[in-house]
Amino acid sequence: MGITHFQIDDGWQSGRSANSAFAGGTLTKIWDNPNYWKPDPVKFPHGLGVVVQRGKALGINVCLWFNPSKDDSYAHWQNDAEALISLYKNYGINTFKIDGVQVTDKKAK
């Protein structure tokens, strides 16, 4: 089919977003859960490494959905950046769909 990239959308992570099919999701106070941006252990019991390796074997770059924490005009941007860097270091994931960003004031720039 010529697929070069495959994005795993919302739901790969341990935390539940506001868009989750399951109740209790949020896009605020996500850093109250230090495992929010870790792979969901039920959906990915062996982490994302196996998925990324298989993608590489097939010539497909595995990409992930990511929604930064909106709290206090993105005050946790450093935590968000570290989460992305960690996913890169741990799994080699280098492409992310950054979603849901709404810059509503000068502080959020």
Rank of each mutant, 00 (worst) to 15 (best):
G2M: 04
G2P: 03
G2C: 05
I3E: 03
I3M: 12
I3G: 05
I3Q: 02
Q7K: 14
I8C: 04
I8D: 08
I8H: 12
D10P: 14
G11R: 06
G11T: 08
W12T: 10
W12K: 12
S14F: 15
S14N: 15
S14K: 15
G15H: 08
R16F: 10
S17Q: 11
A18L: 12
A18K: 13
S20Q: 05
S20F: 03
A21T: 14
A23H: 15
G24T: 13
G25N: 03
G25A: 01
T26C: 07
T26V: 13
L27P: 01
T28E: 10
T28D: 04
T28L: 12
D32H: 12
N33R: 08
N33G: 04
P34L: 06
N35F: 11
Y36Q: 10
Y36T: 15
W37L: 10
W37N: 10
K38W: 12
K38Y: 14
K38D: 10
P39I: 05
P39Q: 09
D40G: 03
D40A: 12
D40K: 14
P41G: 13
V42G: 04
F44H: 13
F44S: 08
F44I: 05
H46I: 05
L48D: 01
G49Q: 05
G49F: 03
V50N: 07
V50H: 05
V51N: 00
V51K: 02
V52L: 02
V52Y: 00
V52T: 06
G55A: 07
G55Q: 00
G55W: 00
K56C: 03
K56P: 01
A57V: 02
A57C: 02
A57D: 12
L58S: 09
L58H: 12
L58E: 09
G59N: 14
G59Y: 01
I60T: 02
N61I: 04
N61D: 04
N61G: 01
N61H: 05
V62D: 00
L64T: 07
L64Y: 06
W65D: 03
W65Y: 15
F66Y: 15
F66N: 08
N67W: 04
N67H: 08
P68S: 06
P68N: 09
S69Q: 13
S69A: 13
K70G: 08
K70Q: 11
D71G: 03
D71S: 07
D71P: 00
S73A: 13
S73L: 02
S73F: 00
Y74P: 00
A75L: 08
A75P: 00
W77H: 15
W77E: 01
N79G: 04
N79L: 11
D80T: 11
D80R: 14
E82C: 03
E82H: 14
A83S: 14
A83R: 00
L84A: 13
L84H: 07
L84W: 02
L84I: 06
I85T: 11
I85N: 10
I85Y: 06
I85E: 04
S86V: 02
S86K: 13
S86Y: 07
S86P: 00
L87A: 12
Y88F: 13
Y88A: 07
K89V: 11
K89P: 00
K89H: 09
K89I: 04
N90G: 06
Y91R: 11
G92H: 07
I93W: 00
N94S: 15
N94V: 03
N94P: 02
N94W: 01
F96T: 08
K97R: 14
I98A: 08
D99W: 05
D99M: 01
D99Q: 05
G100S: 11
V101I: 15
